[in-house]
């Protein structure tokens, strides 16, 4: 008897569920990083599947820079309540007090203080020994070599030389006190896989992914949505209403919108497939130089 094809999506789904369960089984205090985007939405869905009928046995952690789209925050709170998971929201209060923001400090400083440092603070504060993250190997060249279970030192650093060989689906989950692991269940997913899976499983994602008339301004040739009145405007400048959507969600001043008519999931997928720019282009952080992500990772950025 010939089997039904065990499809690509079902294979990477099974792998992701295996990884998530492995974290829950092998660590004392795991957490799932939740950044509200489409990849996080998939991860959350996979976590729900992994432990059904129980809710996932770990909390979700959101690093709130205070510059996220308002819609993202509403979406986050609602989803956490629906799934019945504890939601931990952490903000770098020190950075906030010093007024660090993307406009006057630039994207690099803002990201470092409000994201990278904030994440380390939260991991230390709650004593998490494993953090499940949504990074994918196809996102960026240096990530292509990332392990599924990525070892971090006591000060949360990633050292490309001390990564453990990873064979079969046997993961080395041993750490000493204070050390930690970042686990990436969707390592082997591509952007298209994510969209297909969202389509296949009917996973809910924030509205910002769908094209809609939104107020935007142009900054350095990119469209930035006016999500609140913190965005500096030139005298007399008025936001334009444009039909836009976002390929990735982050801090609104750092996340460029694209003009689009894609209002449904199939339309987004169609647009994504024929699009000739990779999704990270919308993320202003990567633009400096090719090796920059690797540097950020060594410093502890996810």
């Amino acid at each position: 008897m010939k089997n039904a094809v065990f499809t690509h999506l079902r294979r990477i789904e099974a792998e992701a569920i295996h990884i998530i369960r492995e974290v829950a089984a092998a660590f004392e205090r795991p957490v799932m990083m939740y950044s509200i985007g489409k990849d996080s939405s998939c991860m959350l869905h996979l976590a729900e599947k992994a432990f059904y009928p129980a809710p996932p046995p770990f909390p979700m952690l959101h690093i709130d820079t205070t510059w996220k789209f308002k819609e993202m925050i509403q979406f986050r709170d609602r989803r956490a309540a629906e799934i019945g998971m504890d939601l931990i929201v952490h903000t770098n209060e020190e950075g906030l007090a010093r007024g660090v923001n993307p406009f006057s400090h630039g994207s690099a400083v803002h990201t470092d203080v409000m994201k990278t440092q904030a994440l380390k603070q939260a991991l230390t504060k709650y004593g998490f020994d494993a953090a499940i993250g949504g990074a994918r190997r196809d996102e960026e060249k240096s990530r292509a070599k990332e392990r599924v279970f990525s070892f971090r030192t006591k000060d949360h650093r990633w050292d490309p030389k001390s990564q453990r060989p990873e064979l079969w689906n046997i993961y080395n989950t041993r750490i000493a006190k204070g050390e930690s692991i970042r686990a990436f269940p969707i390592s082997n997913w591509t952007e298209l896989d994510i969209w297909q899976y969202i389509h296949l499983e009917g996973i809910e994602i924030p509205d910002l992914y769908f094209a809609k008339e939104r107020p935007v301004v142009e900054r350095d040739g990119q469209l930035i949505m006016v999500d609140d009145d913190r965005i500096p405007m030139a005298p007399g400048e008025q936001p334009m209403m444009k039909k836009v959507r976002f390929r990735t969600l982050g801090c609104y001043p750092l996340t460029a919108a694209i003009e689009s008519g894609a209002e449904t999931l199939p339309e987004i997928i169609q647009e994504t497939l024929v699009s000739r720019t990779s999704e990270r282009q919308g993320r202003i952080i990567d633009h400096d130089q090719s090796g920059s992500m690797e540097k950020k990772k060594q410093e502890g950025y996810f």
Binding site: V5, T7, H8, L9, I12, L192, H199, P266, E267, I269
Partner: peptide, 14 residues
């Protein structure tokens, strides 16, 4: 047509 395409994609193996 897009839906049909997606269904085909979702049937690929690895």
């Amino acid at each position: 047509e897009v839906e049909r395409f997606l269904e085909e994609q979702e049937r690929k193996d690895l």
